Computed example of a mutant assay.
Amino acid sequence: MNEFQLPDMTCSHCASMVTKALKLTDPDCEVTIDLKAQKVGVRSTEDRQTLADALAEAGYPPV
Rank of each mutant, 00 (worst) to 15 (best):
A21Y: 12
D34S: 13
T50Y: 01
A52K: 10
H13V: 05
Q49C: 01
M17K: 11
V18L: 11
F4H: 13
T25Q: 02
P62Y: 13
T50E: 09
I33G: 12
A56L: 04
D28T: 02
P61D: 10
V40G: 08
P62V: 06
S44P: 12
M17L: 10
M17C: 06
T25H: 02
G59V: 02
A56E: 10
P7A: 08
Q38G: 08
V40E: 05
V63K: 14
D34L: 06
M1S: 08
D53W: 02
A52T: 07
P7V: 02
R43P: 00
K20W: 04
D28I: 00
C14T: 03
D53Y: 02
C29A: 14
T19M: 09
V40W: 08
L55Q: 00
L24Q: 12
A58P: 06
R48Y: 07
D53P: 02
R48L: 05
P27C: 07
D28E: 07
D26N: 01
S44Y: 11
T25R: 02
D26A: 01
L35E: 11
A37N: 14
C14F: 10
A56Y: 03
P61C: 08
R48C: 06
A15D: 10
A52F: 07
K23R: 15
T50V: 15
T19E: 15
E30M: 15
Q49R: 08
P61Y: 06
D26R: 00
N2D: 11
A21E: 12
G41Q: 12
A54E: 10
L24D: 10
A54R: 10
